[in-house]
Design a protein around this nucleic acid. Structure first.
Lengths: 252, 252
DNA sequence: CGCATGCTTGACTGAACTCAAAGTCCGTGG
DNA sequence: CCACGGACTTTGAGTTCAGTCAAGCATGCG
């Protein structure tokens, strides 16, 4: 059994008139290969040649941007703490929320193909990231590289999660999508050692709605409906799941 | 300029009462690393150590299954010819169409993470696939491996395409989704050297609808509407794009 | 030829969107 | 400290868009 702790309700971002000026990337060195493997829940095979890996540490305040669309690829990130939001902005200016990465998730993998990042990532809470620089991934002299293999394994995992997420938007009814979203969130929290029954959503109703392709009002109404039915308890962003069984029934 | 050819309208699959019995995987050897790189439109860096690569060739008749959910991972496939359909089946039995792979696309990458395939892939037309066996990808003694790097680069590309596809379902109006779907199809055909203005859709209205999360009737109505407006010409599955400009306007 | 599948079109219904108003929480500044 | 403002949320009422149900046609196969 994993150690269950309550989710740190971390400084929620309250929009302030001006984006606070900040000292950029605390570029601390950080070298704990086993911790990264553990965060990623890696269970593949390695060659055991993990030389002294040079990771970096990066802390973000809520509201800060972790990666920007179009920025040249400079490596991958593993989330050590905090919640983020990944989104794409279309030519017509419309935003599309792709995912809500949290502890153990990988960021930036869409930058490998074209050598620049293709999505925006912003911190929803204060965050602690581990950077795997591109030099560690691709250095040609390095030969066979455990880091590269680990990274690609993690990318494969992210693909699977993306497919699952994609499937989220394919329920007939909007209430069903919201119910499924909550269940998936619950499972993700549980997988990282947090409580599955009680958690704080780090994102707004609008972001949830965008992600599920429904309006924020519909999300709100769905939450209220599930609350009135006694299936969950909603108090702003504090969610308690009272009956996982009943929640699952709503996913049809 | 690429060589433009009309899309081979390839034996469309007409469902027959019984799945035809077939000789399985023609397991021919096949060893043309440059062709694979070309198919994948690879433009990354390699170490130039591409030893004698041992690929396999596999031909499928329309309607045959290329990969099955749950089947143990045995490698990746690159499509050399033909069209396919990727889908996931949920616990409740609902099918979700993820993508329509064609020439140059990669199959099976969702199998790396859990060492088994997580989606169904069936051929919509007769297909010609190149198999990259897992032994070629992961053999530990092999050291630094160009094939592995190429494969992962291709996976990164597929992620990007998946995100684009995912965004397909995030247009407000259903007509807009259908219009965007047609434009994306057109661009994909063009990217592989086929005509961008005239092509044959290999999939049913139902599959398109499932993919876009609308009903087949809605797809049909959208096609008709775009036809009546003179933006496209639809005759069963034969599509002509008459005004790409106008088509784009419908994506808002 | 009959049958099955796929496609189109119409009429009706209902779910989700839009618009609107009011309430809550939180940080800021007087 | 308290009042204000802004973002976020909830809830209601009206409307529109897409789903459902149904009928009919086309095509290709046995």
């Amino acid at each position: 059994m994993m150690n269950v702790q309550t989710l740190p309700s971390a400084a929620r971002w309250q929009p302030s008139a001006s984006q606070p000026v900040l000292k950029l990337d605390s570029d601390e060195r950080w070298s704990d290969f086993p911790e990264v493997l553990n965060l990623l829940r890696f269970d593949g095979q390695l060659h055991g040649m993990n030389d002294t890996s040079l990771f970096r540490r990066r802390r973000l305040k809520a509201g800060q941007s972790a990666l920007r669309m179009g920025q040249p690829f400079e490596g991958l990130y593993v989330v050590r703490l905090g919640s983020l939001k990944t989104s794409m902005t279309h030519v017509d200016g419309a935003e599309h929320v792709l995912a809500f990465p949290m502890k153990g998730d990988l960021l930036g993998f869409d930058g490998i193909c074209k050598n620049k990042y293709l999505s925006e990532v912003v911190a929803l809470t204060d965050c602690d990231l581990i950077k795997i620089p591109d030099t560690e991934l691709f250095s040609p002299g390095r030969g066979c590289n455990d880091i590269e293999r680990m990274a690609y394994w993690a990318i494969s995992r992210e693909i699977v999660q993306e497919q699952t997420t994609y499937a989220l938007t394919h329920s007939a009814k909007s209430e069903a999508r919201v119910a499924r979203f909550l269940r998936v969130q619950s499972e993700r929290f549980a997988a990282m050692g947090y409580s599955a029954n009680r958690f704080t959503l780090p994102m707004t109703r609008r972001d949830i709605g965008n992600h599920l392709n429904v309006t924020l009002e519909t999300v709100s109404r769905a939450f209220s409906a599930l609350d009135h039915l006694g299936i969950i308890s909603v108090e702003r962003r504090e969610i308690k799941i009272l009956s996982l069984e009943a929640l699952r029934k709503f996913e049809a």
